[in-house]
Amino acid sequence: MVRLSIVVAIGVLSAIGLSPTVASSEPTGHRHEIEIFSAGEPGDPEKPSRVIKVTMQESDGKMLFVPDHVEVRKGEQIKFELYNSGEFDHEFVLATTQENQKHAEAMKMNPQMEHDDPNATRIAPKKRDEIVWNFTKLGEFEFACLIPGHRDAGMFGTVRVK
């Protein structure tokens, strides 16, 4: 049904002359049409960054990030070195709490959704990945795992930008 909806949407967009930038070859894929992010912008991997190592894990029925709180300065570029030490796939999605909660609801409808956005990554057990991010906006932001049930099990943290 999802595949049929995507095919119909591509046909409609093509018929009216719009580019189907949201659709992808993978029906479980997901990419934002407009590249505007609440927490800043993708960083430049060629420029110096402060490294923050974040581990994803399960412990005593909880799922969590260690550390679960980070403080950065406005304009600072951070390289998040992510390691999934757990037994399940986990995600790191950087946005506002409200955006992540809304996105988590969408994930419940499509639990195999994968992200193709610079502020998000899914990591298999015992694997590593990284996100380089330039925090251009003041405020408090959230990183969370939006796989159904994971955020509810405690898998979220905060980034405070001062």
Rank of each mutant, 00 (worst) to 15 (best):
L94E: 08
L94Q: 06
A95K: 08
T96C: 11
T97Q: 13
Q98K: 12
E99T: 08
E99W: 12
E99Q: 15
N100E: 07
N100A: 08
N100P: 01
N100S: 06
Q101D: 13
Q101M: 07
K102V: 13
H103F: 15
H103D: 05
H103C: 00
H103V: 00
A104I: 02
A104G: 01
A104V: 01
A104P: 00
E105S: 12
E105Q: 14
E105M: 13
E105G: 03
E105A: 15
E105D: 13
A106S: 12
A106P: 00
M107R: 12
M107W: 08
K108I: 00
K108A: 04
K108R: 14
M109Y: 03
M109S: 12
N110A: 11
N110E: 13
N110C: 06
P111H: 06
Q112L: 14
Q112D: 14
M113W: 04
M113L: 10
E114L: 05
E114I: 06
H115T: 09
H115A: 05
D116L: 09
D117W: 02
D117Q: 08
P118Y: 06
P118C: 09
P118W: 11
P118T: 04
A120D: 06
A120F: 04
A120K: 03
A120E: 05
T121Q: 02
R122K: 14
R122T: 10
R122Q: 05
I123W: 07
A124C: 02
P125K: 04
K126D: 03
K127G: 00
K127N: 12
K127T: 02
R128Q: 10
D129H: 11
E130T: 14
I131E: 05
I131P: 15
I131N: 08
V132T: 12
V132C: 01
W133E: 10
W133F: 13
W133V: 08
F135T: 11
K137I: 03
K137G: 01
K137N: 14
K137L: 01
